[in-house]
Design a protein around this nucleic acid. Structure first.
Lengths: 227, 227
DNA sequence: TATTTTAGATAGCAATACTATCAATAAATA
DNA sequence: TATTTATTGATAGTATTGCTATCTAAAATA
């Protein structure tokens, strides 16, 4: 028996739920491939329609525009990651061990999750690294925020912030440190692969160096000896 | 006698140097206003032309496309900031004091620099916060990097990294910590103003809280007691 | 079987992202 | 002073993007 994971999505992100039809799933699946291939700026609904074998109008029946599709994809990713973090840390009672696990889950390459058929989490992870911040770096971030578009991201940040507080109740900046970890787990990865002189990691090396950097930074900041 | 600051710019960023003509300076000046007003996505050369009272073709004589104009503006900002950091720290011999000054210069609101007539650094700072990362989060980051588009950013990162090493020669991640400081000085500011629940700072409060957060993070990481 | 939902096909339109051409004017230089 | 050169303005045009509308056929559901 295989358990299909379903991430509960904000209904305002789509016109028709892509999870409920083959075309919808195809849109999501191929959007991930195409955004990864072309980059978000060069990605268009017309190209997406062509790659699926449907029409532009067909895509517009599911998503209002490509920005909402991006928010949908990143939201899905954060929701899925929260689930994954829950799953891998619920049996850990020591908050220090828990926080280390979270950092590792945030910064390490994602392998395709077989429990979600149409979504390739590995590629989606790459998209979140390269395009994720474009989902909120807009003039309409305030409106989008009112519509709860960033709830999954905030939820994750909150969870991480709470674990930080469990490690040290007196630490003054749990949320900022949490958002710093999350953002830097991705940005240091992007820099490592594209602008390596902005990091101390070589392209050859895997993400474990990023994990070490972040881990040392976090536990120093909250004055906990993690060794 | 007023000393006009001139930032040496990468010649590949423009077709005709905007510093050398009134129209060019107008383009830069109004581009800053318009990008800040509309956001980079909604900003077009046609709108810019209209706001200056020239034609679209006129803008294209100076900049190949709006992406290069964005890279131009952010590069200018990083060059200007490096100059400013130099100016404010060259007389400081203690690297700990120096690093604190740098963090403060990175994170605090910028006031318009009267030494540059056509560029409003305060607004440009806002643009770098909201749009800056879009200059490298592209599929052509590799090509752009080969053309040295990101040299000013890398130079700044290098300077900060070196100061970190001056504080603690044994610290393993000076460049990553430097890029983390620079990015987070901006991103925490953006979050504070737009997605405040991702930070521990209230909208009312000024950037000094961000400076405190970053300062504690940095000096903890390099195991220096800054008090 | 009747009816609602879904998808494919086609058309069209305003805005965007450019490129090209030509004339007017101002500045630099012969 | 005459003349080349650089700069700008004006206009046109094209391919692509972003989006809406309509109509039909097929599939799912009542």
């Amino acid at each position: 028996m295989s358990l299909e994971i379903k991430i509960k999505m904000n209904e305002s992100l789509f016109l028709k739920n892509p999870e409920n039809s083959d075309l919808g799933k195809n849109i999501v699946q191929h959007a991930i491939q195409l955004i990864h291939l072309k980059g978000f700026e060069a990605f268009t609904f017309k190209k997406l329609a062509f790659s699926i074998g449907t029409t532009e109008a067909g895509i517009y029946r599911y998503f209002e525009n490509k920005h909402k599709l991006l928010v949908y994809l990143t939201s899905w990713y954060w929701g899925w990651l929260e689930f994954k973090i829950d799953y891998h840390t619920n049996n850990i009672s020591n908050p220090v061990v828990k926080l280390k696990k979270v950092i590792s889950l945030l910064a390490k390459t994602v392998e395709d999750d077989k429990n979600t058929s149409h979504i390739d989490e590995g590629i989606l992870h790459q998209i979140v690294i390269s395009e994720g911040s474009k989902s909120y770096l807009t003039k309409h971030v305030g409106k989008d925020n009112k519509q709860k578009f960033f709830k999954p991201y905030k939820d994750l940040c909150n969870i991480v912030g709470k674990i930080i507080l469990e490690c040290n109740k007196k630490y003054k900046y749990p949320k900022s440190l949490a958002s710093t970890i999350i953002e830097m787990a991705h940005l240091q990865n992007f820099f490592m692969n594209n602008l390596p002189s902005l990091t101390d990691f070589s392209k050859q090396k895997d993400e474990s160096e990023i994990v070490s950097f972040l881990t040392e930074m976090v536990f120093s900041s909250i004055h906990i000896n993690q060794k």
